[in-house]
Design a protein around this nucleic acid. Structure first.
Length: 585
DNA sequence: GCCGTTTTCGGCCCGACTGTTTTCAGTCG
């Protein structure tokens, strides 16, 4: 059997390494940046890069020109990139790892290897232990200590910094904001950075503040109970690590340019670089303090972020779109999408109860859903094959349907309680309940919970087979990923999306912060293909009903409008949209 | 290496902080 083509991530990694090695060798910085930018694009492309390459469409991706497209082709056909192979062979193994250590960088790494005539990472560690690093001019004890710390455990220093889930990062951020808001020297403060953009994970938490008293604000920040250690302290920026190691960074400006600061610190880097490059062409220089009209030297600033965009001739761009994925072009053309809002969601199609592995009773979950203002809720406990005896067999499902109907009757017409299930998609693509049983349900969610490691071809076939079922309305957490713990199942997402469109099956956007599945990139692929989404909580507790905003924000990051989301509709409208409305009853 | 609402050549965002120095390079975001 032919081996599957390299994944987008695997291809991107080659180009990241190419950029790193070039940087180490002191190549022109713009070549390095070009490879990094291309790597990021390849990594975040939802379509198969191998397929785009075969079709000669790679250069349509931003940051990918002929040279890099050719190298991708070379990699796919020969299994290597000759230029990369040469770079690898003439640099010490592990030099990139040393370069990536906190506070080191390419220039320092290169000097250490060259001036001390070292060959491996182990040599570097030895040199640091022996105190030889500090003998180099411009390097001292602190740098040596940083290198030792980076190489201490694990050995090669290559372990990437852990990233926090959006939920944890926001929770910490809100704690910090509460401390700051209690301080007289703080006029206003907000979350910025990837946390404001609702990226699925964050390396750190960015907080911005307009202050009348920097000293007082800084004290309120560093006195927080969450602070484990102040790691950096300047006049306008302070960073502290929390007890779990998360670094929180506070940037302060006086009133008058708060909007510029918020815009700057919200990022992303790619968004800001593109924004500023376009501004430079208009003879404007953009920074966190204002917009300078280069010729007159006049600096314009505002406390209102929307006015910053307006001053640049753009409509305000929602933070969730600021990833350098075409949002500026869309904004210039007046073609920004109207994004789905949390308040658009009218019901939840995926909720568990203690009939299976939920923590709360059916009645409690209904109460929570009603309390949130929903019009409907679909009860979706597990089918038997999920294991541990917690799934509902046919008899218990019948009993649950009966109870749901009974309770539902007491709630109508204000609230519609739906009898559903989260039925397992078995290894061969068949379902864990009979069609006769599924036919009695209002809305069926089908999910993969086992055999995650099938080949891409088999996994895709399996999922597509389930989508063909006239009883499957929603594909639950389509890739099965658990962020930071389990990779997404290898799936040909383009094929799955096409099958979902063809069969009229909705694809779930799970609001669980550790799932967010579909991911933002896949959401965009699905929306562009005309697929229908269902933003659900998959709640297993009353508290988890409140995860909804994470799902909505994730969908917004995939450029989703309300029309693409099935559960922005009333139940009668939704029913006629789903297969549920087309089944004989 | 990429790219164009001034450009197919000549640019390429902008500032804060640290560590090491005595004025700044390197790193980071």
């Amino acid at each position: 059997m032919e081996s599957p083509p390299l994944s987008n991530v695997a291809i991107a990694e080659r180009f990241e390494l190419l950029g790193d090695l070039l940087e180490l060798e002191g190549a022109v910085v713009y070549r390095v940046l070009a490879y990094r930018r291309a790597a990021q694009t390849l990594r975040e492309t939802a379509e198969s890069v191998a397929r785009l390459s075969a079709e000669g469409r790679l250069t349509s991706l931003p940051g990918v020109g002929q040279t890099i497209a050719d190298k991708v082709g070379e990699l796919l056909s020969t299994g290597e990139i000759a230029a990369l192979t040469r770079l690898v062979s003439r640099n010490p193994p592990g030099a990139v790892a040393v370069m990536r250590l906190q506070g080191v960088g390419p220039k320092t790494a290169r000097r250490i290897f060259a001036e001390l005539d070292l060959k491996t990472v182990a040599d570097v560690r030895e040199a640091a232990v022996a105190g030889r690093i500090r003998t180099l001019s411009g390097l001292g004890e602190k740098t040596e200590a940083a290198i030792l710390a980076g190489l201490a455990d694990g050995g090669d220093g290559a372990a990437p910094a852990p990233r926090r889930s959006i939920a944890r990062a926001r929770a910490l951020g809100e704690t910090v904001l509460a401390d700051l808001r209690a301080c007289d020297g703080v006029i206003r403060c907000d979350l910025a950075g990837s946390v404001r953009r609702y990226r699925e994970t964050s390396k750190d938490v960015d907080v911005v503040a307009a202050v009348s008293n920097r000293i007082a604000a800084a004290e309120a920040f560093t006195a927080g109970e969450w602070v484990a250690e102040v790691v950096s302290r300047g006049d306008s920026r302070i960073a502290a690590s929390a007890h779990d190691g998360t670094v929180v960074e506070l940037r302060m400006v006086p009133e008058g340019c708060y909007g510029n600061l918020v815009q700057h610190l919200t990022g992303s880097k790619a968004h800001n670089v593109a924004l500023r490059e376009a501004a430079v062409r208009k003879k404007l220089s953009v920074s966190e303090y204002g917009i300078e009209h280069v010729e007159s030297g006049e600096v314009w600033s505002s406390d209102d972020e929307a006015e910053v965009y307006e001053h640049l001739g753009l409509p305000w761009i929602p933070p969730e779109l600021r990833e350098g994925r075409g949002e500026l072009e869309a904004a210039r053309k007046g073609a920004l999408p109207a994004l789905v809002e949390v308040s658009d969601i009218r019901g939840d199609l995926h909720v568990h109860t203690d009939w299976s592995d939920g923590k709360a009773t059916l009645e409690k979950m209904v109460e929570a859903a009603r309390g949130r203002g929903y019009e409907y809720m679909n009860v979706t406990d597990h089918s038997p094959s999920v294991g541990f005896g917690m799934g509902l067999d046919a008899g218990r499902l019948h009993a649950q349907i009966e109870r749901v109907r009974e309770l539902g009757a007491t709630l109508a017409p204000d609230f519609t309680l739906l009898a559903g299930a989260e039925v397992d998609i078995l290894r061969d693509g068949s379902l864990d309940y009979s069609d006769e049983l599924l036919a009695q349900l209002d809305v069926v969610v089908a999910s993969v919970h086992a055999s995650h490691r099938l080949s891409a071809a088999d996994q895709t076939k399996r999922v597509c087979a389930a989508l063909e079922s006239p009883y499957v309305d929603v594909l639950g957490h389509p890739t099965g990923r658990l962020i930071g713990r389990r990779e997404p199942n290898p799936l040909d997402m383009e094929a799955v999306v096409a099958k979902a469109v063809e069969t009229g099956t909705a694809l779930e956007v799970s609001s669980q912060p550790h799932r967010l599945d579909l991911s933002d990139v896949h959401v965009r692929l699905a929306v562009e293909a005309g697929a229908m989404l269902a933003i659900d909580t998959d709640a297993h507790s009353v508290a988890a009903i409140d995860y909804l905003p994470y799902g909505v924000m994730n969908a917004r990051r995939g450029w989703t409008g309300p029309a693409s989301v099935a559960n922005t509709r009333s139940w009668p409208q939704l029913r006629s949209l789903l297969k549920a409305g087309k089944r004989p009853r």
